[in-house]
Amino acid sequence: MKKPSRQSVQGKGHTTAEESSLKGTFVSVLILAAIMVASWAAIMLLFLERF
């Protein structure tokens, strides 16, 4: 917030720099997706086991 001019310049162009800067986010959400699939599959297996 201190340097609005610099920030807005950053936000404008530099698509490649920006995209590389969100790799950590992407990796984190992929971990989230893995947990999502694993937990759902576990309960699905329990359902099938009890069927």
Binding site: E18, E19, L22, K23, T25, V29, A33
Partner: peptide, 19 residues
């Protein structure tokens, strides 16, 4: 929409569609 966000939303939606 950021490239990675697009990719994530596609992956996430695909998972939900598979479910």
């Amino acid at each position: 929409i950021h490239h990675y966000e697009k990719l994530w939303l596609i992956i996430g939606s695909l998972i939900l569609i598979i479910f």
